[in-house]
Design a protein around this nucleic acid. Structure first.
Lengths: 135, 135
DNA sequence: ATCTTTGCTTAGAATGATTCTTGATCTCAT
DNA sequence: ATGAGATCAAGAATCATTCTAAGCAAAGAT
């Protein structure tokens, strides 16, 4: 945990919710889960905590299209797969090191700081259901 | 142009604005530009037209973090580079065919329909300015 | 130990992008 | 022409998120 991030009870709780959740909850989801153990916490505080944690690189913000941001405590290098059937978001690990500059033509002198990839499609369950229902 | 997309004057104008714009305008940007030649057009109509055009695959919606959606008439396979310095969004073409399944581990049976990549960083101009100012 | 500064939390208001609603208008096949 | 189904415009509504103001709490200075 970064030294310059003051770990208040609220921040600790928000982080703990994310640490044990593997479903990429939204701020509201986090709020409801945190509330179970810390009934006084407010949604604004959850937003503040998520912002502080994100800025300090302790959690990742995951944006899918225009929907509410989701959050994730998995800091390993990974991308997100969004199932268009059931809406779930799951992590996908790279097969090997992938860098943007290797894969896309960028003007000479461009500095890449982050590569943000979302894969859209159907998870195995939805893909199967889809095949069956379509004949 | 898809046969099942009725090309009303408003849709034609919105499409035309995007065709001649290479700066990935937001819905509001498109609204202002369309208004110059079609003063009666409303923002709601621009949103409706953008939705219709997007659904028919004639334009692409580009989402950058939580900011307003941007739109783009470039249908070639490409990704978007976002400069954190000046905020511009530019297209980047793939060096060769890139498929999600090749690069990331996905559960067996996953069906991929779209790969959405945003590269964040500094464009050559901002990168240069940044280096200079930092010493 | 108390004062002060600074940052955190809270509730509620405000913002801003987008979507919805309604009634008018248009298109096109019958 | 006529009627069904789209589309348009204006404004209201929604929803995620951010801002504001006031109270609190911790860390350091006196």
């Amino acid at each position: 945990m970064p030294a310059d991030l003051r770990m208040t009870p609220q921040r600790r709780e928000v982080y703990e919710v994310l640490r044990v959740s593997h479903d990429h909850p939204t701020a509201t989801d986090v709020f409801h889960r945190a509330k179970e153990r810390m009934p006084g916490i407010s949604l604004a505080t959850v937003y503040n905590c998520l912002e502080a944690l994100t800025e300090h690189g302790v959690v990742r913000q995951v944006n899918v299209e225009r929907a509410s941001s989701r959050y994730c405590a998995n800091l390993d290098d990974h991308v997100h797969f969004h199932c268009e059937g059931c809406g779930q978001v799951v992590d996908a690990m790279p097969r090997e090191d992938v860098t943007a500059a290797q894969l896309w033509k960028l003007p000479r002198g461009t500095k890449v700081t982050a590569l943000d990839v979302s894969i859209h499609g159907l998870c195995p369950e939805c893909a199967k259901a889809n095949t069956k229902s379509s004949h």
